[in-house]
Design a binder for these strands. Sequence first.
RNA 1: GUCCGGUUCGUCUAGGGGUUAGGACACCGCCCUUUCACGGCGGCAACACGGGUUCAAAUCCCGUACCGGAUACCA
Length: 532
Amino acid sequence: MTTRVRFAPSPTGYLHIGSARTALFNYLYARHTGGKFLLRIEDTDLARSTEESTRSILDGLAWLELAHDEEIVFQSDHADKHRATAKTLLAEGKAYRDFTPKAAPNDANVKDVIKDRARAAQGEKNMRDNPYRDLSAEESDARAAAGEPFAIRLEVAETGKTSFEDSVYGLQERDYQETEDLVLLRSDGHPLYNLAVVCDDIEMAITHVIRGQDHLTNAHKQVLIYEALGVAPPTFAHLPLIMAPNKGKLSKRKHGEVVSMTTYRDAGFLAAAFRNFLALLGWSAGEEKEIYTLAELVEKFSLDGIHRSNAIFNFTENDPRRWTDDKAQWMNAEYIRTMPLAELLQFVKAELKAAKLWRDEYDPEGRALTSSVPSTRAAEFQTESGERPENLAFDMPEIGSYDWFVRTVDLIRQRFFTLKDFSSQGRAYFSEDYDFDAAAIEKNLSKFPDLKTWLPELADRFETMDSFTKSEIEEVVKAFTEEKGTKLGVIMNGARTLLTGVAVGPSMLSVFETLGKERSILRLKSHVVWNS
RNA sequence: GUCCGGUUCGUCUAGGGGUUAGGACACCGCCCUUUCACGGCGGCAACACGGGUUCAAAUCCCGUACCGGAUACCA
């Protein structure tokens, strides 16, 4: 039988990081087994479900490239079937009508109320003490016919236990005494979660239910429904939870944007990197490898590799550098600097376009920006000794051309963490309108007042150069430095600040060469910084 | 309260009777260097606790502690 799994979010908010991981694991399992990955929107709670949430969840999945098979199922479309199932169970005597008046709904602190009520019961609560449980069929029918409202509850046997083999947590057993006669249908005719899930999972022929560990007790209730229905339950695999740094629940209300998938997309994360990070939160292939392509994840993924203990998603509020998990940030940077350049270019193009820094000349002639990366690609020159590609010399392409663009991206990506860096820290490579970092000015310019005259003077030297390549630039700058009786670093760092606005970046010789003679001269003569 | 689950460096984790308990991130140091958040080398740092079983326990068993989840006419 083909594996069929589903990701079933309720549309009450954006795609949460924990849900995203659940979706990923379902996806990986489906692809690994050659099965189907289905999507079902659990929108039966009309009051809380919104279309906007559905859109946001779909956006998140699309960003992570977790494409689902078959049509999306909206649970609310099947309410009639759920109701019919409840009626069938009632007719078969496996469920009964409960005429107890519905308790007034309490809003904000439902959870606490329920907890308190349970605590008050002190474990002495008899789950089978509902007075309507043993009402005769005749009387039940009569009261229903008279229009008295009722909920339909599943009749759970007095003794025995539910049990199932969880693929992650092993054999799970629960005494019937611990499970109440759960409500299947609300008195207003609204089908409840556990009923709906079971009906839909059967309808969709789901073979494996992979979801958060917070559903472990629901699994027992669902097994009960499967049994009443005479259908074999699917295989369950519950996932450990992803917690906040204080081991508490990771929630939008408390933690805000860090838990939303769209935040990462908007912050310049690569979906591949984030997916990779997510895959390693609660799962491992049992090896020391950390960077996996999607294909590798699909190949290696298995339910046995899933952990039983919760994982902490680490981040520090109010620390801009640590706003999200360190490892996620590292992984993104790692992807940016090591992924195939041709792939990265497309993302950089999108980023530059969004920042209005893109120029059509950066596209290869008559083609879309994809595979035609020049063979001079620096990454291919990486040597065993760890020599940096930026130290390599090869002919400088025409400034502003496609070849120049490719080379520049490859040069600057080494120190970038997100796609955003290409339009912020890297802005000076693509525009004349870039900002100057105050700390950089202080450190590299203000301390050396002589630079105010020296740098324009250096520009004059550049003016006399016929060819503007690294070796020649080096000669000129070195001679200039000696002449002024200063250190090379003073000149280079001052120039760096003026030319790029920031204190970090590739070798200055590469920067000069990349920016080109004209722009280097222009910027060295700029007084904008000195006057401010 | 009750039921269920968990516990290896700060974090993500490998290891599941005999290991100097491994890797990654973060942090620190050194090197490279005109800068640096790149790269190279190194360092700091963990088996929750108590009993058992065993020649031998991080690993198996029991208990304790702590953490988490569940306990709705929510999903």
